[in-house]
Design a protein around this nucleic acid. Structure first.
Lengths: 143, 143
DNA sequence: GTTAGCTGTTACTTATATAGTAACACCATG
DNA sequence: CATGGTGTTACTATATAAGTAACAGCTAAC
């Protein structure tokens, strides 16, 4: 498999929608910016909508953020994607006839949950607004 | 690709080596516990050796932890694996002709670095000894 | 010295998750 | 009504991880 870029692309979509509000916000246009294809963008936009981060309407190009960018965190976006995804993955096929193999799955589940929580706490500190400000500031410094 | 189980398997190897010290510590035996194959185990053991976490000797079965399990953290093990691996991956193919596409890579690099740091700080708090104690305690509670 | 069993390494194949691609139903607008 | 869009589903391609095979060289027992 490839490394997942879903989170990056989802952030890209939301930032694009806010930065270019009033402009061409079609999935084609966003796909061009991401260098991906419209189908994937639409799939991601659907997930973002279902998670209450984006407002869209079937049949017309009119996406907008569901709430101010300052009230959307990286964690919100992360959780809008496939919920079962975690950052670290326990090997769930170990030999249950061996004391180490039999217990290590639950032990690592707990350890990885700690790491996951720390990651998510960190993501919760990063807002979409902060990301947008950074993009805008970097662009301003190029001129 | 598949989800990586390298970290889980590496922790499994180290825990196995400590818990079963004095027993059969061949890559075959460890592979049986992990339900994997000796080649992968040898590859991981090689990485752990190079990182100074495991002491091994070509030609004879004699692996041992290079230092006490209390002095080995999950972060040490994580870093012993392929160093370029991070938990989140910026999409590095975005349209540089678009202001969002042009800047979002560095912006997300920074955001993801914060998340990575938080994760690594959390991993640093988890010791191999703690993991081993948990495995041993779970096994004790089965009897 | 020989042999068996091991570690360490490399190369190739297979499995799987993600993204790419295609297509269709339905909606909105001119 | 036609065009251009969103939302959804299905299939294909691809990158990465693990599985598999094999070999060089080491160690230890006989």
């Amino acid at each position: 498999m490839k490394y997942s870029h879903k989170l990056s692309d989802a952030v890209h979509i939301l930032a694009y929608v806010d930065i270019f509000k009033g402009g061409d916000l079609s999935s084609r246009a966003i796909a061009d910016s991401i260098e991906s294809n419209p189908s994937l963008i639409r799939r991601l936009m659907s997930m973002l909508s279902k998670a209450g981060l984006l407002t869209t309407q079937s049949g017309s190009v009119s996406p907008k953020l569901s709430r101010p960018a300052a009230n959307i965190s990286l964690l919100n976006i992360y959780q809008a994607l496939d919920d079962s995804t975690t950052l670290l993955h326990v090997d769930d096929k170990t030999n249950l006839n061996c004391p180490v193999g039999r217990n290590i799955q639950q032990t690592l589940d707990q350890a990885y949950q700690q790491v996951q929580t720390a990651s998510e706490n960190s993501m919760a500190q990063i807002t979409l607004q902060g990301i947008i400000d950074d993009i805008v500031e970097r662009e301003a410094q190029r001129n």
